[in-house]
Nucleic acid binder design. Structure first.
Length: 571
RNA sequence: GGGCCUGUAGCUCAACGGUUAGAGCAGAGCGCUCAUAACGCUUUGGUUGGGGGUUCGAAUCCCUCCGGGCCUACCA
């Protein structure tokens, strides 16, 4: 039994996430966590909401609420939806927690002691009307290069020229439209990532088993242009973690907060503290401190590709730079994007299917299965309603659901609702068992390697094997001549259902539970050991109940209806 | 501009430089009747985006052209 720490990229607080966000981090992380728990490992699976930054303040203002209140409310909403998707976090924390405040300030203090933080004076656009400094992207004006009138402060969307906000002609705030912008001198802290470049590069070069997507993004940032750049870790905002040097004030930094990307990853650690505080565990250090038991922890992170730089460079710079014995990530699984019907999912434009809407129209397992079996691992992938309908109907309803249905109903009509005792397994059964034992080993191999699509494919093949067996063994024919023979076939088939429930649980937890429950609360739930015993765990004579059909098929009318309903943007 | 990823059957995807490029779905034919008209078997379908090169051998390596996507550091 090993110990696994798993974190999913923490979703931003300003609204409900779409299916693309879900499949890129939380869902595969949950799959892996459930699988490892199923295999008997000790798992700590953490996630949280990422609550700081300008967009949170703006979203709160739009909702007409104080930002703290808004975040608390949205945290509740996101937690509820996560539960709806059966995301099995051991704790779902908040980056605004007191624990994260303390820890973030602690890291800043230690990094300063090590000489890894420098102060930089710079000028930034301030908007008196908005009462805030404006990030470059919140300033628009006319591009001095091409004349485009909606060029943003960082880059012109029309001619792609990199800009500085001061270059813009007639600049204005995109928040209020105010034009009375002024340059103000302000002082900020920079993390000296450049000083750690060699150490970071050596560390990443050692990770030869990481996905190409992860290492190529990391190396690009390490070696692009002048190499790894120092990064500002403070902002002039009200909402965030006040800049402090550990427990002490930081002269000159009054009224400033840490940049959200500095404190967000630290929440992974703080979240474990919250987990203890919430009474769900009693020792967070054995997961996070290598001097206190975490040296034998395997730490895996899940995220979309947009998050990779911060997890391969920024956060490790914080951890390594501190010189303290914190657990460093062992494996970073990153994902490409899921597109929606020919375009991108977009939170800001409300395009695509959002997590709350998805749960309103279908149970979580339908989404989990489709999303995971089509996870964008090697390249961006695409969601279409036709593909979704086809996959779900075929894989879940026809292959798995119908297998459970035909076996349990046949048994009920011929032997009653108990596991038939007669006969014994013969050559056909032995062949099936050999085949499945090999397939289960392959399935485990893919899950261990976090090859999500391949694992889904193998699991499906395991389901199919049941139908093939049933067809060739034909218990309905055997029953007429040799009821004992039919009894043995049905007994094995019922055992397959129990086995499928165990194997499928990481992908489709609710349906797996329904399958398992058919055999009562005492049915063996252990992960298969790879022996013949896996196929005779059900006692002859044990009672079972015929479950309701596991999956209803998606009708063409429903699909067309959803297609229309989700064609535009979310109101 | 720079960098990275990607292009394989109608669709979604596989394939350490090594037999005849494979699966699932969709299509066609047959079989079965336990089951949600479900299941099983067989089968059609590819000049691996185009062109050139390296090699005994290329989907795979190199060059070039074409298409798609992402990143480029103050949205997160």
């Amino acid at each position: 039994m090993a110990r696994h720490l798993i974190t999913s990229a923490i979703p931003y607080i300003n609204g409900i996430k779409h299916l693309g966000n879900l499949v890129g981090s939380q869902l595969p992380a949950d799959l892996y966590a459930r699988y490892l728990r199923g295999r008997g490992h000790e798992v700590l699976f953490l996630c949280a909401t990422d609550e700081h930054g300008t967009p949170a303040e703006l979203a709160a203002a739009k909702a007409g609420k104080p930002v703290a209140e808004y975040c608390e409310e949205m945290h509740g909403v996101q937690a509820k939806i996560a539960e709806g998707f059966r995301l099995s976090f051991d704790h779902f924390g908040r980056s605004s927690s007191p624990q994260n405040h303390r820890l973030t300030q602690h890291f800043a203090g230690v990094l300063a002691e090590k000489g890894l933080i420098r102060e930089v004076s710079e000028t930034q656009m301030y908007s008196p009307t908005d009462g805030r400094y404006l990030p470059d992207r919140y300033i628009e004006g006319t591009c001095p290069n091409c004349g485009f009138d909606s060029a943003r402060g960082d880059q012109c969307d029309n001619c792609t020229k990199q800009l500085d906000p001061v270059d813009l002609i007639n600049p204005h705030s995109t928040i209020s439209g105010a034009t009375d912008l002024e340059m103000r001198e302000t002082k900020h802290l920079y993390l000296r990532q450049s000083a750690m470049k060699d150490e970071l590069e050596a560390w990443i070069d050692g990770k030869t088993d990481w996905p190409v997507l992860t290492t190529s993004i990391a190396k690009k940032w390490l070696n692009d242009g002048d190499g790894l750049q120092d990064r500002g870790i403070t902002r002039d905002l009200d909402w965030g973690i006040p800049v402090r040097k550990g427990e002490e004030d930081w002269p000159g930094m009054e009224g400033k907060v840490f940049y959200v990307w500095f404190d967000a990853p630290i929440e992974y650690i703080a979240c474990a503290q919250e987990w203890v505080e919430a009474g769900k565990g009693d020792d967070w250090e054995r997961w996070w401190r290598t001097d206190k038991g975490a040296e034998d922890v395997t730490y895996t992170q899940f995220m979309g590709k947009d998050n990779v730089p911060f997890h391969t460079l920024g956060f490790p710079a914080t951890i390594l730079g501190s010189g303290e014995p914190w657990k460093l990530v062992d494996y970073i699984k990153s994902f490409n994007y899921l597109n929606y019907d020919g375009g991108q999912f977009s939170t800001s434009r409300g395009r695509g299917v959002f997590m709350d809407q998805a749960l309103e129209i279908l149970p979580a397992d339908y989404w989990r299965w489709w999303l995971l079996s089509h996870a964008p691992e090697s390249s961006d992938s695409e969601f279409t309603w036709e593909n979704f309908q086809q996959s779900v109907n075929k894989d879940l309803a026809d292959v798995l659901g119908n297998f459970v249905s035909r076996v349990t109903k046949f048994c009920r009509s011929k032997f009653g609702e108990e596991v038939p005792a007669g006969g014994s397994y013969g050559p056909q059964e032995e062949a099936l068992i050999a085949d499945l034992t090999a397939r289960i080993a392959a399935y485990q191999g893919h899950m261990d390697a976090i090859e999500v699509r391949k694992a889904a494919q193998e699991l499906r093949a395991i389901w199919v094997a049941g139908n093939e067996y049933l067809q060739s063994a034909a218990p309905w024919a055997a029953f007429k001549e040799d009821p004992e023979r039919a009894a043995a076939i049905v007994r094995l088939s019922l055992n397959l259902i129990r086995l499928y429930a165990v194997l499928s649980a990481p992908f489709i937890p609710d349906s797996a539970e329904t399958m398992m429950n058919a055999f009562g609360p005492d049915a063996v739930r252990d992960w298969p050991a790879g022996t013949a015993a896996d196929f005779e765990a059900l006692e002859p004579g044990a009672a079972f109940t015929v479950p309701e059909n596991l999956f209803a098929k998606i009708a063409d009318e429903s699909r067309e209806d959803w297609q229309t309903r989700f064609a535009g943007t979310r109101s």
